[in-house]
Measured scan of single mutants.
Amino acid sequence: FDIYVVTADYLPLGAEQDAITLREGQYVEVLDAAHPLRWLVRTKPTKSSPSRQGWVSPAYLDRRL
């Protein structure tokens, strides 16, 4: 999967189903980028939180090589 970094805090609107909150600087794996406005991502697990999966706007993501 492609690795992206979150460029700004992402707080989903209440109406968005299956969306997750992301923090600036967080790394995520993009699982599904087929839709231009919503990408399915999975967060990297940390010592304090397990990995999470949900939909985010790709405008908040920047690809890492």
Rank of each mutant, 00 (worst) to 15 (best):
F1P: 10
D2H: 10
D2W: 13
D2C: 14
D2K: 09
I3W: 15
I3R: 04
Y4R: 03
Y4C: 06
Y4E: 00
Y4M: 05
Y4D: 00
Y4P: 00
V5G: 02
V5I: 14
V6W: 01
V6E: 00
T7I: 15
T7D: 02
T7Q: 05
A8N: 07
A8S: 11
A8F: 07
Y10R: 03
Y10T: 05
Y10V: 10
L11N: 14
L11H: 13
P12R: 06
P12Y: 06
P12A: 08
P12K: 06
P12E: 06
P12C: 07
L13I: 11
G14Y: 11
G14Q: 13
G14F: 12
G14K: 11
A15F: 13
A15W: 14
E16Q: 09
E16H: 09
E16T: 08
Q17Y: 11
Q17N: 11
Q17E: 14
Q17R: 11
Q17D: 13
Q17W: 13
D18S: 07
D18H: 08
D18P: 06
D18E: 09
D18F: 08
I20P: 04
T21N: 09
L22K: 00
L22D: 00
L22S: 00
L22P: 00
L22E: 00
L22W: 03
L22I: 04
L22T: 01
R23H: 12
R23G: 04
R23L: 13
R23E: 10
R23D: 06
R23M: 11
R23Q: 10
E24V: 14
E24G: 07
E24Q: 15
E24H: 10
G25N: 03
G25V: 01
G25H: 03
G25I: 01
G25Q: 02
Q26N: 04
Q26F: 03
Q26V: 06
Y27S: 06
Y27T: 08
Y27I: 14
Y27K: 06
V28A: 01
V28G: 00
V28W: 01
V28P: 00
V28C: 03
E29T: 08
E29P: 00
E29D: 06
V30A: 02
V30L: 09
V30R: 01
V30Y: 01
L31D: 00
D32W: 10
D32C: 11
D32P: 00
A33R: 14
A33K: 15
A33V: 05
A34I: 08
A34Y: 08
A34D: 10
H35D: 15
H35Y: 08
P36S: 08
P36V: 05
L37R: 07
L37T: 11
L37V: 06
L37C: 12
L37I: 06
R38M: 09
R38F: 09
R38K: 10
R38Q: 06
R38Y: 09
R38D: 02
R38V: 05
R38T: 05
W39G: 00
W39V: 02
W39I: 01
W39R: 00
L40M: 05
V41N: 00
V41D: 00
V41H: 01
R42P: 01
R42L: 04
R42E: 04
R42W: 02
T43L: 07
T43H: 03
T43N: 02
K44D: 05
K44Q: 15
K44T: 12
K44H: 12
P45H: 07
P45K: 08
P45L: 05
P45E: 12
P45R: 08
T46R: 05
T46S: 10
K47I: 11
K47V: 12
K47F: 11
S49E: 15
S49D: 13
P50E: 10
P50T: 07
P50W: 03
P50I: 07
S51P: 09
R52C: 10
G54W: 05
G54K: 01
G54S: 03
G54E: 04
W55R: 03
W55L: 04
W55P: 01
V56D: 01
V56I: 10
V56A: 05
V56C: 07
V56F: 03
S57H: 10
S57Q: 05
S57K: 05
S57T: 04
P58F: 02
P58T: 04
P58K: 03
P58M: 03
A59V: 11
Y60I: 09
Y60S: 04
L61K: 00
L61Y: 00
L61E: 01
L61M: 03
L61V: 03
L61A: 00
D62E: 15
D62I: 12
D62L: 13
R63A: 10
R64H: 15
R64Y: 15
R64K: 12
R64T: 14
R64E: 13
L65M: 13
L65H: 13
L65Y: 13
L65T: 13
